[in-house]
Design a protein around this nucleic acid. Structure first.
Lengths: 209, 209
DNA sequence: ATTTGATTCAAACGTTTGTTTTAATCAGGC
DNA sequence: GCCTGATTAAAACAAACGTTTGAATCAAAT
């Protein structure tokens, strides 16, 4: 097979270093050195450092959102076919399961969870705007379905429960990507599927509480 | 009353700008201008920009940890007096309630939640080390008590449940500090005490699940 | 073989940053 | 009034950054 293109080599190196060092610490000099391309290649192919980050995020976000949307849509369709509201279990699973599995299992996407976990709190407008632009539509779809699955609750209550669940999810992804923080005596070989199960049990109980 | 000292004016301005713009975007020139002190005052009083951040974090973290430690210790002592294990409700409340209330109610601490929420994911070693150094002991105490309150569960399970709860908590603090992200039609005047109640109900149900 | 357009390269540019320096200023004790 | 140590002030420093430039190189089509 042929050598990856310059663009792809830059994207790969940038993803690793943005995740490891943060957007502002990861210099173009360091990224292009690791990618073994010329410094000017970033501005030639992407225009700017910020556009590069945008492409790094989009390369993972778009496929992930496709999966999440398909699963949410399937939950909506099946409930409609059976003439009932979707269950909170199905709605939560449709969003959370692919989120964690994508980040932990997709080859090369290990760093993506770190990147996403950080993008939410990022003060930089460019980063947050990319994130909001790509995540907000799927978030609203998620919110809408969860409201239907919990018809007795006020929208505000559902909103906060949803964020409690999202917070647990994203925080778990960050810890999973930083297992050196584990106290002694704990199992370092964490099984992703089992972790997802435990997380799902937790948030389902919380949402129904 | 007298004008705050140079050191305090720097700390106040730095806290605001570190939270608003992030550690690397907030320049010493901007901070010292807002504090109305000379640029060199930071290096004179604190030694470096990183040491300044350390002092900004410590100024809030130390009182907060004192409160959390007192409440956890009270839970431990009462359970021991009554010859029983502490309840998960009491343990979770002892940690989470002061955390949120401190950030939302302490005058001048509004920005602290943003700062803390970001410090967890910060790639910069200095920032993370300050945070880990000050938070790890109280975290381990929290972990130890929660294990006692859930004697039938494995340590690994308790650890992850604890992090699910912490993730929900810190994420809530971030959203609370960024209410402009709320979808339309939702109540923007969020009552902190009620939010803490809903969060506590959520994580207690999750931890017991 | 030549031309053409896209890509790569080395070098430099202009800006901003945290930090350091050196002198000026201030407050308190003798 | 003078001395002393602490603080403030203005200016300069050195390093790092993202970006731009213009020439060199390459691949494909004519």
């Amino acid at each position: 097979m042929s050598q990856p293109t310059t663009k792809d080599r830059i994207l790969d190196a940038a993803e690793v270093q943005f995740a490891r060092d943060g957007f502002h610490f990861a210099s173009l000099r360091s990224i292009t050195k690791e990618a073994d391309v010329n410094l000017a290649a970033v501005n030639y192919h992407f225009g700017s450092k910020e556009s590069l980050l945008e492409e790094v995020l989009k390369r993972r976000l778009i496929p992930l959102n496709t999966i999440r949307k398909e699963r949410l849509e399937a939950v909506r369709a099946q409930a409609e076919d059976e003439g009932r509201a979707p269950t909170p279990e199905a709605v939560l699973a449709a969003f959370i399961e692919p989120t964690i599995q994508f980040c932990c299992k997709e080859p090369g996407a290990e760093n993506f969870s770190t990147l996403v976990g950080r993008a939410i709190t990022e003060p930089d407008d460019t980063i947050r705007n990319v994130f909001i632009h790509h995540v907000m539509p799927i978030f609203l779809f998620f919110f809408e379905l969860l409201q239907k699955s919990l018809p007795t609750l006020k929208a505000d209550t559902v909103f906060w429960k949803l964020h409690f669940a999202l917070g647990a999810t994203t925080h778990t992804m960050r810890i999973f990507g930083n297992l050196e923080l584990l106290p002694e005596g704990l199992n370092r070989d964490v099984d992703v599927d089992q972790l997802v199960d435990e997380l799902m049990t937790f948030v389902i109980a919380g949402v129904k509480s």
